[in-house]
Computed example of a mutant assay.
Amino acid sequence: MSDRPTRFLSGDWGTSRLRVRLVESETLTTITEADSDDGIGPTFRAWQEAGSPGDREGFYLRVLAPLVDRFRESSDVDLTSLTLVLSGMASATIGMRELPYAPAPLPLSGEGLPTARIAPGILPCETLLVTGVRTDEDIMRGEETILLGLAADGLTDALVILPGTHSKHAVVRNGILEHFHTYLTGELFALVRDHSVLRPSLAPSPTPGEAFERGVRDASSANLLGELFALRAGSVLHGTPPEENAARLSGLLIGTELGGLASDSVADLPIVVAAPEPLRSFYRSALACLDLEGRCQFIPDEAMSRVIFLGQRAILAQSASEQPPTRVSPST
């Protein structure tokens, strides 16, 4: 597209982290980046502790401002000419402005995905706030950008697995996100490891290996609740090492998440796993244990950023003719 901006700012505001990158639009290469621990969770708590001021949007933008200001110092780019495409939790109930979810089925062209444009003021650039997607039983925010990027890169039909704190399995047919399911895999692992009676029996980080693979295979026939306490019993009675217990716990949870992929309604679809290391290695091992690796494509680390940029670029293009941006006062 001839009128495409030559650069844009890519923002990912997750629950625990905030990351902004300056991106070349055509090559999708990162020029410079900045990040912080000012995730949506801590920012929401800070807003509450400040007395929940009415200027909520401005409060959040002022958290963003120091990161954006770093680009003034590290590049010669005129920030006033750029747009910050902000994906993730910024449009959630705990974000700066809650946007309605787009309903699935959703074309993965970016069309039909609600956005909100915020004019320069507190930030020197325009901000494009991206919403999430819903079904009657499930919700996502942030993952839709990855799915749009995969579609822009040529994906038309696949079961897309997006591992993480809340893993997503998204069914895409003919370039349309038909439906998806969320699994509490990563969060449940963290809760059991850090806040349960099993804590002394578990190592901080698991590794894929024999104990992990046994957990994956056992997940299909085991009672998960019983298997969880068996980790504690094995530690007390037989001295099972914490590293082995952590690996088996990870295998049980990921095996439970992936159970049924060979026999359900998506058995005809290739499987695309979009996750950074080390998560990708765990899912590769688990899918091999389940004899599904032949159906799988794994997106490497170096391609993950490009996929996100592709999705955000598609959203930016779709938003070009939408409503004018709202203004937020720069006053504190």
Score class of each variant (00 low, 15 high):
G142S: 01
L150Y: 11
L228N: 01
D69M: 04
F44Q: 09
G142E: 06
L67Y: 08
T83G: 04
I40E: 03
G54M: 08
L86E: 04
V130G: 03
G294Q: 13
A203Y: 10
R306S: 02
V192F: 14
T326M: 14
G95V: 01
L231T: 11
T127C: 08
L237Q: 07
V307N: 04
D69P: 07
P53F: 13
P241I: 02
S75T: 15
D55Q: 14
L231V: 11
K168N: 06
D157E: 12
P105K: 07
T29V: 02
S75V: 02
L159P: 01
G164S: 09
L249D: 11
R70V: 04
Q318I: 02
H179N: 13
L9A: 08
H166A: 10
S281G: 15
E143N: 03
G260T: 10
S91K: 06
I161S: 07
T256E: 05
R134V: 00
A262P: 06
T182I: 07
L292D: 04
P5E: 08
P300L: 13
S221Y: 02
F298E: 04
T145A: 05
A34C: 13
L22P: 05
V307I: 15
E137G: 05
G54T: 13
G121A: 03
I315E: 01
A34D: 09
S25A: 15
F309P: 07
L252F: 12
L64S: 06
P270F: 09
I31A: 06
H238K: 12
Y283G: 11
V328M: 08
F212Q: 03
P53L: 08
S91E: 02
L18W: 11
S109F: 08
A119T: 07
L279A: 15
A90E: 05
D194N: 15
D136P: 00
I40R: 04
L228V: 11
T27W: 07
L191P: 00
P208D: 02
E322F: 06
F59G: 00
L84N: 04
F189W: 12
E26D: 15
I40W: 03
S74P: 04
W47A: 13
L184T: 10
C296E: 09
W47R: 14
D194C: 04
R280P: 10
G51D: 03
T156F: 05
A203C: 05
E227D: 11
A320M: 10
P276V: 09
C289Y: 09
A233L: 12
R313T: 01
Q318K: 15
A286D: 04
A275T: 10
A90T: 04
P242I: 13
L86K: 02
S205V: 14
L159S: 02
A46T: 06
E293D: 15
